[in-house]
Design a protein around this nucleic acid. Structure first.
Lengths: 252, 252
DNA sequence: TAGTGGTCTAGACCACATT
DNA sequence: ATGTGGTCTAGACCACTAC
């Protein structure tokens, strides 16, 4: 005897639910191989597309990862803690260390690629930076990886006229990074705003971050303000949501 | 002549890319109906499952929403701005207004349902609250909606022994909400930590938030600390990511 | 080489929304 | 009543992985 109502449920959902229960019970642990399409066809007497659909449910929920030619495997979740407030305190970036070093808490967040160019920024960002219409920005694109696994794409925009000739316009910005250099030219930021959203990745983001199906991205747009209230930098970040926990501390 | 390399691309991806381009160009705007499965089968000379797969790509990217019996429609994005820092400043919850009123910025964030019960909390939360093993917590579950559309599920955990007999254990907590009541019994919170993650929703969350395919949820876990450093409340929130922008402001 | 997941076809029946 | 998307079948060929 089955529990009531299960008859109205599509087959693929019933299969998905049973697989999910097996994962939550620990019958399959992180990294384990699940029954594949052929196994499910035999076990449940369904067609291939139906077995596929069941596995697809777990994939789009991010529980499971399909590896071509190998099988379907349970994913694991071990995120990095990123502290939004403390990491930008003066004690850190005022001296020799880069802002990003603290991200990985002992592990090493490695910069995989840097490009610097003058470009016309998106309209909204140009406006925030107070650029004249059509003026160009210094655009710094970076990709960060942890243990070789890419976890974040970052794009910084700064007023090209302000930073040209400084280390900010070079791939290597030197100790303390962009913010230390801005301080040296009298525009050190003291106030920050981070705006956070989440959505499914574009195919390009999926590619650059090597995301598996069912993994959203988190978007952080950080604006850095000087004491005078000028926005000197806008940093657009795209994070692998399975790689991060963001933390913000504040007082009332 | 096609551009080089397109031949190596699966048909469904090619179709998906063309539809996506049409949306980005504005040929289809928010709320518009896209070509359906039958249209695509005819236009591209493919089988039904292939047309479906193409539309599935846009769905899981959150660009598009399928309505049974009606068609496939372009989704729109109009998020609420939620300020993490200012909304908890003393000026707000110290007086008559509830913390949540500012969320919607003029619109009304309505509480759709409240349940209050004493339960054993998840192990990790009991530990944060400093509860003895097996001790029960006062658990407040709420659902918030904007214009009738559910946008957030919130579950608060407090020490049951601390709040029993107060308005916190009632569905209606009175003006200023939980935090004002905690202040009245000498445990007003002054420091907050919010931890943010994102993932695809569980089927239950999809149901309770009426999420369409391709919409992640954002998880905010907020811990409220007293001046003595006690954690008096843990609030677990599940947000429709398409409904929110989170904002955090801070100084270095 | 055998097995896996990825793509694709050509049908079918259903519940549902709009007309 | 017609057309829509949702589910399902029974085949097929391919590229890739593991052995």
């Amino acid at each position: 005897m089955e529990s009531q109502g299960t008859g109205r449920q599509p087959k693929y959902q019933r299969i998905a639910v049973e697989l999910k229960a097996a994962i939550e019970d620990g019958r399959y642990g992180p990294g384990d191989r699940l029954p594949g399409e052929n196994d499910l066809m035999a076990a449940y007497a369904v067609a291939r597309m139906t077995a596929r659909q069941a596995l697809g449910v777990l994939q789009t929920e991010g529980l499971v990862e399909a590896r071509k030619g190998a099988g379907v495997f349970v994913r694991e979740y071990r995120p990095i803690r990123r502290r939004g407030v403390q990491r930008l305190s003066a004690g850190l970036w005022g001296e020799g260390r880069s802002v990003w070093a603290v991200d990985a808490q002992g592990w090493d967040l490695e910069v995989q690629s840097v490009t610097v160019a003058d470009e016309k920024p998106p309209e909204a960002i140009g406006r925030v930076l107070g650029l004249a219409a059509g003026a160009s920005a210094c655009v710094r694109r970076r990709r960060f990886a942890l243990d070789g696994r890419p976890v974040m794409l970052a794009t910084s925009y700064l007023d090209a006229a302000l930073v040209s000739g400084t280390a900010i316009a070079e791939p290597d910005t030197g100790p303390g990074g962009i913010y230390a250099r801005l301080g040296e030219i009298g525009h050190g930021p003291v106030r920050f705003r981070e705006e956070i959203r989440s959505r499914m990745p574009t195919p390009q983001e999926t590619d650059r971050l090597a995301l598996s199906a069912g993994t959203p991205v988190v978007l952080i747009c950080r604006t850095a303000f000087t004491a005078e209230g000028w926005a000197v930098e806008v940093n657009d970040m795209v994070l692998d949501s399975s790689a991060y926990i963001l933390e913000y501390d504040f007082t009332s």
